[in-house]
Simulated assay, not measured.
Amino acid sequence: MPGAPDVEAVFRAEYGRAVSVLVRFLGDIDLAEEAVQDAFTTALGTWPENGVPPSPAGWIITTARNRAIDRLRRESSREARHAEAALLHSPDAPAEEGPVRDDRLRLIFTCCHPALAPQAQVALTLRLLGGLTTPQIARAFLVPEPTMAQRIVRAKAKIRDARIPYRVPRDADLPDRLRGVLAVVYLIFNQGYADTPELSAEAVRLGRLLAELMPDEPEAVGLLALMLLVDSRRDAREDEHGALVPLPEQDRARWDGELIAEGQALVRRCLRRNQPGPYQIQAAIQAVHSDSPTAAATEWAQIRQLYDQLTALAPSPVVALNRAVAVAETEGPRAALALVDALDLGGYHVFHAVRADLLRRLGRGTEAVQAYEEAIAHSDSAAERGYLERRKRELVRR
């Protein structure tokens, strides 16, 4: 008989879909969330006895809709009566395909509206599409739970008060809006990849959704490829003691071959379109890494060329820093250090870590130790700090 794990599995798979549909029906994010949560609570009480229904998502959506109607009936305002009338005349169970998929896309774009602050976009996307609780999101972003709760409440209020439309933007507005959506998904992935696998898994899920719903947007496909290729190395990032293992030292036999094959296929699909964008180029860089049987066999000249292309297309100090790493492998650490020292990234721990490694390779141990200390001070990741501490100790013992 089904139990709590079965309901939890449906929750993880269908929560965002159900909330998306209910938001369209209700025009109210809070009411939609409460109705869907009530439906899952009901499932916990009935599915163990009656079994999982043939269409779990349809059951959840219909039950949530009925819960919303019951709540609106208890309200006395004219607005509530109008909303109830609209719900009573709407279809009982939205189709699994087509409209449901469109609803999820609308909700992603609503969460990522440019009127909302980027941090609020991330939090609200995770809350509504990912089904993560406020405490989970707060822990992932290292902020107190009340702070995150206020952030989410303010974002919902902004959507309501500014009357932000629940729709996919017009074609003319789509490219600008899509960039924000992709940036939020990638930020979620990076945040999770450092310390919280659950977050990165949510980002990959959202990336798959975007690529499926918008197959003609090469940057959406490129972002998915990028995340899959990076995620393929997850099991090799730590040793048996939980210590961080950098890319050159990883056991490549532990990389996920299926994710690599899927990511590389998506990169080839992007290349055939010949509409390069930042995510596609970054995915191509990761594809080069995944093609190399050993660190020594890495085609650094090709990676350098790709970073040159990325610099021309989307210049930024972080891109320049990553390009400098490729320069170190093709021209040597001295040339790379000159590039790194010209960057204004003093608050970014990776900047100090790269600089420390270049100084170490140049035999400038005292300066390298200082750079490692700066990197440690600026890192929020316990695993990264542990790795940097080990590298620093190696220099001190010499």
Results as ranks from 00 to 15, higher is better:
Val245Lys: 03
Ile61Met: 05
Val319Ser: 05
Ser77Phe: 15
Leu206His: 13
Gln264Gly: 00
Phe141Ile: 05
Glu84Gly: 02
Ala220Gln: 06
Cys112Thr: 10
Thr134Gln: 08
Tyr348Glu: 05
Gln305Ser: 15
Gly242Tyr: 03
Ala123Cys: 05
Asn274Asp: 15
Ala57Glu: 13
Val354Leu: 01
Glu202Met: 01
Ala172Pro: 09
Ser90Asp: 10
Lys156Pro: 00
Leu223Tyr: 15
Leu44Cys: 11
Thr330Ala: 01
Val36Ser: 07
Val396His: 06
Glu329Leu: 01
Arg269Ser: 13
Ala336Gly: 07
Glu14Arg: 13
Leu247Lys: 06
Gly386Glu: 02
Pro175Cys: 06
Gly263Phe: 12
Val354Glu: 11
Thr42Gln: 15
Lys158Ser: 00
Arg273Lys: 04
Leu271Tyr: 08
Leu87Lys: 11
Leu129Pro: 06
Leu142Tyr: 00
Gly130Asp: 03
Gly222Ala: 06
Leu124Glu: 05
Ala320Pro: 09
Arg101Asn: 03
Arg106Thr: 01
Ala123Pro: 02
Pro333Arg: 11
Val185Asn: 09
Gly277Lys: 12
Ala283Val: 12
Glu329Tyr: 15
Tyr348Arg: 00
Ile137His: 07
Ser76Ile: 11
Tyr348Thr: 00
Pro315Trp: 13
Ala43Ile: 05
His378Glu: 04
Arg78Asp: 14
Glu258Phe: 07
Pro165Cys: 01
His349Arg: 11
Ala336Lys: 13
Asp235Cys: 01
Arg73Asp: 00
Arg170Ile: 10
His289Ile: 10
Val327Asp: 08
Gln119Leu: 08
Ile188Glu: 13
